[in-house]
Write a protein that binds this DNA or RNA. Structure first.
Length: 289
DNA sequence: TATCCGACCTGTTGGC
DNA sequence: TGCCAACAGGTCGGAT
């Protein structure tokens, strides 16, 4: 599942292989993949034609391609299973090819959005004055963004009446963290996923933030090495699943710190993996005054 | 206003 | 062998 490090690998690929090219044609092969484009598939395709693609940008798990000669951007989200591939024009269509973008040049490659589960998609939006697609103005900066405000995040965390994993997955508070890296960072920080955010001291929340960044940077380093000229994204064969995970998916396997069997608990229609010894559940009434 | 939680979607896996 | 339920999880929007 693409999280921030995977999306950043995709962004770098788009910058290298797509930015600067002029769009000749867009084909929408599945309407659900442009469902976030209110005017529909035909409008999406028509408005892309003839425009130059600017430098690819990213915030959290969203990425976008500014159209260099307009005030709009192509916004993309990979969802659960989305891939953005730069493929030879004569390569066979992927089974789940949803959108194809051809270019007005002789490089012989095209951009393809492939998505099995269609949770992701592309859409076209006006930019805010900051150059951000307007529909993602509510998305917080991600922890790898140099402008991310650590102190503001820690304050917001203390004020929330929620639990720490919910907060990590709240993209309006901190973006780019998904279920996998949330579990990894919490394991490193020795925090139970249901720990109330209001009980986190500043040193503890600073430590958690450091672990979030460490997990992401390590995954980014691995993802970056798997990149080649044909792919602008991660895929199942590229080392995408080669991450060394300490918590996620390790039910009944020994904790790498203490040897206690790891546990999985259903949580919010998904799963949380944790060490029952290193990550003690919170005491029900515990709060900081 | 803040928070919670079901729905969306499809391929894979495991149980019967 | 075939059928079916469970599972994976990011985001949105309705409910509380």
């Amino acid at each position: 599942m693409p999280e921030l490090p995977e999306v950043e690998v995709v962004r770098r690929g788009l910058e290298r292989w797509v930015s600067g090219r002029t769009i000749a044609e867009a084909q929408v092969l599945h309407p659900r993949s442009v469902r976030r484009h209110p005017a529909g598939a035909e409008d999406f395709a028509a408005r892309l034609k003839g425009h130059i693609v600017g430098i690819a940008r990213r915030r959290g798990k969203y990425l976008w391609l500014p159209l260099a000669d307009t005030d709009a951007s192509i916004l993309g989200h990979l969802g659960m299973s989305g891939q953005l591939l730069v493929q030879p024009e004569d390569a066979a269509d992927e089974k789940h090819l949803r959108i194809r973008i051809r270019f007005d040049d002789s490089l012989g490659t095209e951009l393809r959005f492939v998505d099995q589960r269609t949770f992701g998609g592309l859409s076209l939006h006006d930019n805010t004055p900051e150059g951000l697609p307007d529909v993602i103005a509510h998305i917080a900066r991600d922890p790898l963004d140099p402008a991310f405000d650590d102190a503001a995040f820690q304050t917001a965390l203390r004020l929330r009446r929620t639990t720490v994993k919910r907060a990590l997955l709240d993209q309006s508070l901190i973006s780019g963290v998904g279920n996998i890296y949330a579990d990894e960072a919490l394991w490193r920080a020795k925090l139970h996923y249901e720990r109330p955010t209001a009980t986190l001291t500043r040193p503890r929340s600073a430590e958690l933030l450091r672990h979030v960044r460490d997990v992401m940077n390590e995954a980014l380093a691995v993802g970056g090495t798997s990149f080649d000229s044909l792919y602008v994204n991660v895929n199942g064969e590229s080392g995408y699943f080669d991450r060394s995970l300490d918590a996620y998916g390790r039910e009944d396997e020994p904790c790498r710190r203490c040897g206690t069997p790891m546990r999985r608990r259903p949580w919010m229609n998904r799963s949380s993996y944790f060490c029952p010894r290193c990550q003690r559940p919170p005491r029900p009434t515990r709060t900081l005054s």
